[in-house]
Design a protein around this nucleic acid. Structure first.
Lengths: 256, 256
DNA sequence: TCCAATCGTTCGACATTATCGAATGCCGTT
DNA sequence: AACGGCATTCGATAATGTCGAACGATTGGA
């Protein structure tokens, strides 16, 4: 790992981030003191950043603040770096690998919603479609998300749900579900074994965003008979790896 | 103007902006071709930017895209660089200079809304308050904004208004108003001469954002008698200069 | 009104550091 | 297996960023 980083670019980044870390308005002196650089060094970088719109100088006090160019770039990122675009190629690869249907969901306004579905080339496929809601307590994608919420949040969400039994295997007791979530959290993936539909089995993993919050999940859904002793470990490994990669690209820093 | 800009910082900016200008996903080769730099130079800068989260590398094709750090910074800018914060110190200075009330408005959802009011130390002050709506066709702040909308937009807005006469001086005929707006546009400021309230006179100027659109305006409002031959030019100059400075800080590039 | 202090800005000299081109290594394709 | 394309690494060079000092502008206090 003999990375050769560009000093002045790093310093420019240091300066930009200093505004977020300390105060939205800083003078050259303050910056050079914070970073331990000479005033003239800071001045050169600052003037370059100002010239490009990354900083702007206040006219009365001569201090600097972050410029609208960053706002522009940030918006661009927001549009093009959304989870769907990040996840799609990763999911596509996973589908090729497993040749099974893979779903992507997001958790928004207390609901788990399918936002992407990619199918393998099997005859027997899973019924589901983009935009549909998934129950949170008895699906892989729902449980993967639920397992990483605070206990208060879990209680709130479960109390809000009707906990209707879809099959004989559906867990409908809050304590049972909460115990099960601990297992999910521990192993890093969730299993739905015919809990919502007989014959259907899902393996799902949570996706973490740059704040470390779980905001979405992916799952592989297949007829239970196809997920045999040989295939199941592959699915688990694949789903977990894909979820981790999406998380990473979303800016999640895994700190274990 | 012997500015001494830092080359590698400029090149880093070039790279970031290239993603917006061309395509949200670029390879090192594509970047070096576009910018006429060697691959290794680009590689060094890219790795630095990636290291800091300003870029991230896609795992399957090895291309790069803008990173979430920019999203973060952009959001921060959005919060702290909003028009109110930019305008406040500039308005404050103007109030000291003129010792008259100055308003700041934004144009949103077809309405002109006061979002800031700073008063001079006079006994006779103007009634108005933050959050209040201003009619668009017969106030300085409204006309300053209206004068810089497209003709279709002006028609739409005026047809939507009831064009109620507040005083004998209120213009209520669409053609009259549109002719008047041409004057406003030409002189760079709008006058409201007792059009909404007898005895009240306002001088207002438009504020341009970084896209060159007029999204807000400021005005100086005072009893008509106080804006005499001596003071009026000062007010006009002051309001125009303040509006120009706010526009500049919002990222507006005046290209005349 | 003047002086002192503070900070932004400019300047010049130095060596650190970024740069380039060439070499290497890693896929994917034929 | 060999080729092509690309990312990556390496090493030598001088261009470039860095620092300290000097300058200038502004502010506050005596």
């Amino acid at each position: 790992m003999t990375e050769r980083l560009i000093q002045s670019v790093e310093r420019a980044a240091d300066i930009l981030e200093l505004f977020v870390a300390t105060y939205p308005e800083l003078s050259i002196k303050e910056i050079s003191d914070h970073l331990g650089l000479s005033k003239s060094t800071v001045h050169g970088i600052i003037k370059t950043l100002e010239h490009r719109g990354y900083l702007q100088q206040n006219s009365d006090n001569q201090k600097y603040r972050l410029g609208v160019k960053l706002f522009e770039l940030g918006n661009f990122v927001g549009k093009h770096l959304d989870i769907g675009n990040i996840a799609r190629p990763i999911i596509r690869k996973l589908v090729e690998e497993l040749n099974e249907t893979v779903h992507l969901t997001v958790f928004e306004r207390d609901e788990v919603i399918y936002i992407e579905k990619l199918e393998g080339s099997r005859a027997l496929t899973i019924y589901s479609h983009i935009g549909k809601r998934a129950p949170i307590y008895c699906t892989g994608v729902g449980k993967a998300i639920l397992a990483h919420q605070s206990e208060a949040e879990v209680d709130r969400l479960l109390l809000k749900s009707d906990l209707k039994p879809f099959t004989d295997f559906t867990l409908t007791n809050i304590e049972d579900i909460k115990n099960h979530l601990a297992t999910v959290r521990g192993q890093g993936y969730a299993v739905d074994d015919e809990e919502i539909e007989l014959g259907l089995k899902c393996i799902a993993a949570p996706i973490f965003n740059h704040q470390g919050k779980v905001v979405s999940s992916i799952s592989c859904a297949a007829p239970k008979m196809r997920l045999d002793e040989e295939k199941l470990p592959k699915v688990i490994t694949g789903i977990k790896a894909a979820a981790a990669e999406i998380s990473r690209q979303l800016g999640y820093k895994d700190t274990h």
